[in-house]
Design a binder for these strands. Structure first.
Length: 320
DNA sequence: TCTCCTCGAGATCT
DNA sequence: CTCGAGGAGA
């Protein structure tokens, strides 16, 4: 039954795969993969790059090489990639010899990605490779919906002779330094995405008007002001103890303020959330409580409503 | 008018 | 895979 018929002979493969949507959400994850070739059934992922955006600000980066099964041996050394791929991407057999396998990398990537919307360029390509790798390694499919910039680009710029990412970067004068490595392509895609969004607003007045050019079934609900999300940190005073590892100080401040919160330096009677960063500061040793944490626990015992969250707990709390 | 089907043509990813 | 053309059905 798992291999159900679908008229004639075609079998429904990649069941529960996400849908291709059109829109510009506030939270998503830009993803790119490098592979040993074009066919998911015969080739393998050799690099994953990703940047997570939440509430419009970057909240994390992911980058890892992946050692694929070896194709053959040459003079006693394993060959993972053909010379065409090596010269295209700059990823050599030697680099892959030192890399971890997908069994090690994929669980990490899955945790990073979560159920984020995936954004990319001709991203169906990457989604297919990732879907198959998820099934192999995690025993479950990749179900995330995705947004393909190429789809919008074809509609927006029909006069362009070709619509490759490099053509788009050239049009927008986006720096292509390091192109054809996963994280570099993610950054190029992000820059192009910003220009596309601006162009849409100029030409169609609103994102909704542009989305009307597409079937209803693929229109993503827009950044409507969701009260629950807006209120995520509304009016709450937050204090950070230690160092947030996934993002910089400035980004943390921007993130808290974009969600309506206020960041303070010291724990006080106003404080409602204390965030324990994974990174430690000078005098603090692993396992020891920081001065700020002790103080927060004191306040809590005296009846103040104050949440003490780890870095991970903080991010999952604001994600919804 | 709007949505959903089928069919053929044309590109994009490494 | 996605789109446009052309057609069926509300």
């Amino acid at each position: 039954m798992a291999y159900g018929y679908r008229y004639g002979s075609s079998v429904s493969e990649r069941k529960d795969k996400g849908k291709s949507l059109i829109g510009f959400p506030e939270s998503y994850c830009i993803v790119d993969t490098e592979t040993t070739g074009l066919s998911p059934s015969e080739e393998h992922i050799i690099e994953i790059g990703a940047i997570r955006i939440e509430g419009g600000v970057e909240t994390g980066r992911f980058q890892s090489l992946i050692q694929p099964p070896k194709k053959r041996s040459y003079r006693g050394k394993p060959v993972f990639v053909d010379s065409f791929i090596s010269s295209l991407t700059g990823i050599s057999n030697q680099m892959l010899l030192d890399a971890r396998t997908e069994a090690e990398v994929l669980p990490e990537f899955a945790a990073f990605l979560g159920d984020s919307l995936i954004v990319g360029y001709n991203v169906g390509f990457d989604v297919n490779f990732l879907y198959d790798a998820y099934e192999r390694v995690l025993g479950k499919p990749l179900c995330n919906d995705f947004i393909d910039l190429l789809r919008m680009v074809k509609k927006l710029y029909p006069e362009m002779p070709r619509h490759r990412l490099q053509d788009l970067a050239e049009k927008f004068r986006v720096d292509t330094e390091g192109e054809h490595r996963a994280l570099a392509d993610v950054i190029i895609t992000r820059e192009c995405g910003k220009r596309i969004q601006k162009d849409i607003l100029r030409r169609y007045e609103s994102l909704e008007a542009f989305q009307m050019l597409y079937p209803k079934s693929c229109r993503l609900p827009n950044p409507v002001i969701k009260p629950s999300k807006e209120a995520a940190l509304s009016g709450q005073h937050c204090v950070i103890s230690g160092r947030i590892e996934t993002i910089s100080r400035a980004e943390t401040k921007a993130l808290i303020e974009s969600l309506g919160g206020i960041q303070d330096e010291a724990v006080s009677r106003k404080t409602s959330i204390l965030i324990l960063g994974n990174g430690l500061y000078g005098a603090n040793k692993p396992g020891e409580k920081s001065v700020k944490q002790k103080k927060a626990e004191q306040y809590r015992e005296s009846g103040q409503e104050i949440e003490i969250l780890t870095e991970e707990e903080f991010f999952t709390r604001i994600r919804r």
